[in-house]
Simulated scan of single mutants.
Amino acid sequence: MALSFCGNDKGINPYSVVQGTLNNGCFVDALNLVPHVFLLFITFPILFIGWGSQSSKVQIHHNTWLHFPGHNMRWILTFSLLFVHVCEFAEGIVSDKTMLTTTHLHLFLPAFMGFIAATTSVVYYHNIETSNFPKLLLVLFIYWVLAFITKSIKLWKFAAYEVGPQHLRFCITALLVLLYGLLMAVEINVIRVRKYVFFANPQKVKPPEDLQDLGVRFLQPFVNLLSKATYWWMNPLIIGAHKRPIELKKIGKLPIAMRALTNYLKLKDAYEDQRTAEDPNKAPSIWRSMYQAFGRPILLSSTFRYLADLLGFAGPLCICGIVKYLKQDKLSEQDKAKEEKTQILAPVEML
């Protein structure tokens, strides 16, 4: 089977633009490749130069540093973008399989390149964040703008040819337009807060005091969202524990915000804030004080705990569904075999 970006179907000229350039679906798909190629072409040299450089400005070999505005939102949107690109790739493969002639690379190659570009974008962002050199984020801003424009053109042409929400490819493209738009908004927010371009006085941010203390080894508040979720930053400690017993000095100190004295002072302030001059003898509520001091972390951890307990039922339910499906399939095969046997014996009984 011949391999071609637009296909080699006989009697069809897939490269024709007689009816308009944007009316050629293959050209629109090729246009969607441009932002991904641009990002890979620009970021790979920067990443390689950064890893091999010892410059104080582009040291991207740090384990952790500070977070730019919208850090968690960017990671969540990027994970969602990767998932949608996988769906787009799968839809393109299935669409290509329905064509029994030649392979049409334009159906799934842009999705594959988009997945690579999205992965590269989050790696690039992490390294720029750890180097505290936000000017290099301008490349990502240009990428999100280009990707948003090209996907919007594709969505517009789908609507022009009456490909609507009842079609999977339309829904996937609409989700990509939404995700690229949100990522572009996150990038604009970073520019607005950090003022690293288009402003006369950019904001200078120093790393947290805890990171400057070499005795602090608990890095959970300072690592990226992926490392927080998987506790990847603890790998050196876990690997070392397999080799020799852990010493207390290797565990290190807790960050200032997580020490007992800090939490005590926070709870004490919340407790004392309930005393009023009108009723100085009124006893403050310890529960209200705890909610004011630690309400958000408690609610967040409780929500995740309930979600984890509910998701614990997913495994047994999936097994139940699989067993039920196999049982029905086996019963249907037995009924079919019984019916065939009846049809064979019927003429014999008549004789």
Rank of each mutant, 00 (worst) to 15 (best):
M1S: 12
A2P: 15
D9V: 05
Y15K: 02
S16D: 14
L22K: 01
L22T: 12
N23R: 10
G25C: 06
V28G: 03
V28D: 03
A30F: 06
L31R: 01
L33P: 01
H36F: 03
F38L: 06
I46A: 13
G50A: 09
W51M: 11
S53W: 01
S55P: 06
S56Q: 12
H61I: 10
T64K: 11
G70A: 05
N72K: 08
N72C: 07
W75S: 12
W75K: 08
T78C: 13
F79S: 13
S80W: 05
V84W: 00
K97W: 10
M99E: 13
M99K: 15
L100V: 08
L100A: 11
T102V: 00
H104Q: 14
H104N: 14
L105R: 08
A111E: 05
A111H: 04
A117T: 02
S121H: 10
S121F: 06
S121P: 12
Y125R: 09
H126F: 07
N127E: 15
I128M: 09
E129A: 10
S131Q: 10
N132S: 08
F133D: 07
L137V: 01
L140G: 03
L140P: 06
I142D: 03
W144P: 03
V145M: 04
I153H: 01
K154G: 00
L155Y: 03
W156M: 11
A159E: 12
G164D: 15
Q166F: 13
Q166L: 15
A174F: 03
L175V: 05
V177D: 00
L178M: 04
L182E: 09
M184N: 07
I188W: 03
N189E: 14
V190E: 09
R192A: 13
Y196G: 01
A200V: 15
A200D: 14
A200G: 10
K204I: 04
P208S: 03
P208Q: 02
D210N: 08
D213H: 01
R217D: 02
A229M: 15
W233R: 07
N235L: 14
I238R: 05
G240P: 02
P245G: 02
E247V: 11
E247Q: 13
L248V: 14
K249F: 06
K249C: 09
K249P: 05
K250N: 14
K250T: 12
K253L: 06
T262Y: 10
N263G: 15
A270L: 01
A270Q: 06
A270S: 12
D273F: 02
T276V: 00
N281K: 06
P284F: 03
Y291N: 14
G295M: 08
R296K: 14
P297A: 07
L300K: 13
F304R: 04
F304C: 10
L307Y: 08
L311W: 11
A314H: 09
A314D: 15
P316M: 03
C320D: 08
K324G: 14
Y325R: 08
L326C: 06
Q328G: 06
D329E: 15
K330S: 08
Q334M: 07
K336P: 02
A346N: 14
V348F: 00
V348H: 00
E349H: 05
